[in-house]
């Protein structure tokens, strides 16, 4: 008879999904909780920079599209929290970890959203980078996560198209709009590349996660895909590529590009971005302000239950 661990590895190798009630190594569970909750927190924190422009969206159509998008992010946060809950952690615990700084969220949201073009750039580049990663995660070994990703990818690709289309309107618009678009591209291009994480050689969790097929492609491979697909998109917009070192490499069949500013990457991850404190404070403030509302629901439900029980007792008597 084979051991539980051998059976687990057999499933992984056979591309069978691991389901919540299946045996799994503790570290597999931990890695998944870390990755899924980080992903959920990113969706939830991501509502802030984009929500920041809902009240200022420049047309009613753009306002409606942006509200829908932020609403989708909230929905993604919900699926992902639920997926993580199948691993034995509660939403309340995850929120506590987010607020205490124990759990991370994507560093991209620690960059400030300053202009309307930033909203377009986020849809195009940030959702675009997220999709490259998430498409590969549709094949992740954990069933609930994989199914969540399939659903989320559909909506994200819609966001990406909307973002690009909004960017196109700006790039083909007035000189002022075009300048705003270029500025947003210049600021968000590099942080978008950083979303794929450190170089493979520097990535603490990568190796085991690849072996267990939690991650299916390496950070550097995914980043390369994104770099390659973005070159032509920038050309179509008629904007300048922010990377002066971008150059087609015939031999590799990929674009060569300049190295990222890794000092900035680690600095933002370690709390020194423009908005790290603001994002968490906003989340804490909304959560704390909502406490009396949550208490009211609990009190109301328990009153109703008491009443129901009393009525039932009466009927029985």
């Amino acid at each position: 008879m084979i051991s539980e661990e051998q059976n687990f590895m057999r499933k992984i190798e056979a591309e069978e999904k691991i389901e919540p009630k299946d045996w799994m190594p503790d570290q597999y569970r931990k890695n998944l909780i870390r990755q899924i909750s980080q992903h959920a927190h990113s969706e939830v924190i991501g509502m802030q920079p984009e929500g920041n422009y809902i009240t200022r969206a420049p047309s009613l159509r753009r306002k409606a599209v942006l509200i829908s998008k932020v609403q989708d992010e909230a929905g993604h946060g919900l699926y992902l929290y639920s997926a993580a809950e199948t691993l034995g952690i509660s939403r309340a615990e995850m929120i506590e970890q987010l607020q205490s700084g124990k759990a991370k969220y994507s560093s991209i949201f620690n960059y400030p959203v300053l202009t309307w073009a930033d909203i377009a750039a986020i849809g195009w580049l940030v959702d675009g980078a997220a999709i490259v990663n998430q498409v590969s995660l549709q094949r992740t070994s954990y069933g609930p996560y994989s199914r969540g990703m399939i659903r989320i990818c559909k909506e994200e690709s819609f966001h990406q198209r909307q973002g690009y289309e909004a960017m196109l309107s700006l790039a083909k618009g007035s000189a002022g709009q075009k300048a705003m678009a270029q500025d947003a591209l210049n600021r968000f291009y590099w942080p978008a590349l950083m979303m794929f994480g450190p170089h493979d050689s520097e990535s603490a969790h990568s190796q085991k996660s690849m072996e267990w097929k939690i991650k299916r492609e390496t950070n550097d491979d995914l980043r390369q895909k994104f770099i390659d697909q973005t070159v032509e998109q920038i050309e179509v917009l008629g904007l300048d590529h922010p990377d002066k070192g971008i150059k087609w490499n015939e031999e590799r069949g990929h674009y060569d590009s300049s190295d990222l500013n890794w000092d900035e990457f680690w600095s933002v991850i370690n709390g020194n971005g423009h908005c790290n404190r603001q994002r968490v404070e906003h989340h804490v403030a909304a959560h704390d302000e909502g406490e009396w509302v949550r208490d009211a629901i609990t009190a109301y439900n328990s009153k109703k239950n008491n009443k129901k029980n009393a009525n039932q007792t009466k009927q029985v008597a």
Binding site: V44, M47, Q48, V70, Q71, L78, H282, H287, G290, V293
Partner: peptide, 13 residues
């Protein structure tokens, strides 16, 4: 719309 990301929990957002 001013409530979005300020609600008492995610479902309300």
């Amino acid at each position: 719309s001013e409530w979005i990301s300020y609600g008492p929990f995610l479902e309300e957002d």
